[in-house]
Amino acid sequence: MIERSLDVDAVRAFVHVADTGSFTRCAEIMGTSQSAISLKIQRLETRLGHRLLERTPRSVRLSAPGAIFLERARDLVAAHDRVLGAFGASRQRLAIGISDHVAGPELPTLISRMNARDTGVLIEIRIGSTGELLQAFDRRELNAAIVRFHDDRDDGKVVAEEKFGWFAASDWRHRHGEPIPVATMPEPCGVRSLASRRLDDAGIDWTEIFIGGGVAAVSAAVTAKLGVAALAPRMLPFGVVDVGPALGLPDLPRLPIVLHSRVRDGRSAAILGELSAAFRSAARD
């Protein structure tokens, strides 16, 4: 009798490739190399006797058998994880800090996806400033932190770099001769520190008009026409535009998103890999 059992990790890899359309992103999620993922998929295809993915130098797409297998593959991975969760000694706990300047509008969808894919891991999310979260990480209150680059740190892994600009409500107008009113987050905030330093270095006369407890509050202040704020485009509310060039404000650099983690392998590492890949994709968009 020919052995027909499937490697669950290979099936999981297939699902990730199907969802992301990329062997590279799948490798990032699973914390391995692209060649290792390719080998897993090849062995899975050999086991099933069908080509599951059509590969070209520029794209990866499902074959007809792959499209049929995908939902069954999802069911198999989900059942596998449910069994592990039910018979494990306890659910793993993964405490992740995510900077408010990183979290963005995608976060609720990402949390839902993470929970659905691995119910054996209890995910705890803490939102805060980069400085606060790094302090909590150093106190070992967090297993990982996904934050903006911090001047005082040279550890962590850069996940992506994201464009920032100066934004204001489309119908807001600066009063000539008055300081530029700026809405910011409270200290310690790396974006606040960078933005204020760039304004000072450029000799721009500015004043702090509003301090918000998070990006949502700062965005609300901008929408309310209080002034301008340094924000990433994906964080913008409707009706907000880039006013930096018109006001002669200094360019802001692309700011890194950095992963600090003590998680090295296992299911928690896979979740962190998927989160990192999602933020990398959002930053590119």
Results as ranks from 00 to 15, higher is better:
227 G>R: 08
246 A>C: 13
196 S>E: 04
201 D>H: 00
229 A>Q: 10
249 L>K: 01
258 V>N: 14
199 L>R: 04
195 A>N: 01
200 D>N: 09
227 G>I: 08
252 L>A: 02
256 P>A: 15
217 A>L: 11
220 A>L: 15
248 G>E: 09
209 I>R: 12
222 V>C: 04
238 F>T: 09
256 P>M: 13
206 W>L: 08
248 G>R: 15
235 M>T: 07
196 S>A: 06
245 P>R: 14
222 V>S: 03
237 P>H: 15
200 D>V: 03
248 G>P: 08
214 G>V: 11
218 V>Y: 13
202 A>T: 06
212 G>F: 14
196 S>T: 05
237 P>V: 12
252 L>F: 03
243 V>Q: 10
254 R>A: 14
249 L>R: 00
198 R>F: 03
205 D>M: 04
253 P>N: 14
255 L>S: 03
214 G>C: 14
258 V>P: 08
235 M>R: 05
257 I>E: 05
251 D>Y: 02
199 L>S: 05
204 I>Y: 01
255 L>V: 11
236 L>H: 03
239 G>W: 12
195 A>L: 02
248 G>L: 13
200 D>Q: 15
230 A>Y: 01
236 L>F: 04
198 R>V: 04
200 D>F: 03
211 I>R: 06
254 R>K: 10
213 G>R: 15
244 G>N: 06
253 P>M: 14
222 V>P: 02
227 G>A: 10
210 F>L: 06
210 F>W: 06
220 A>T: 13
226 L>A: 05
207 T>I: 15
205 D>G: 00
244 G>P: 02
218 V>C: 13
249 L>A: 05
251 D>T: 04
238 F>N: 13
245 P>W: 15
251 D>K: 04
242 D>R: 12
205 D>S: 07
249 L>T: 03
235 M>A: 08
230 A>K: 01
231 L>A: 11
242 D>N: 13
244 G>C: 03
214 G>P: 09
249 L>W: 00
222 V>M: 00
216 A>R: 15
201 D>W: 02
237 P>I: 12
229 A>G: 11
215 V>W: 07
215 V>G: 05
215 V>N: 07
227 G>K: 12
219 S>V: 09
203 G>F: 04
254 R>G: 11
225 K>H: 14
216 A>W: 06
236 L>V: 05
237 P>Y: 15
205 D>W: 02
204 I>L: 02
244 G>H: 04
196 S>C: 06
249 L>Q: 00
232 A>T: 07
205 D>I: 03
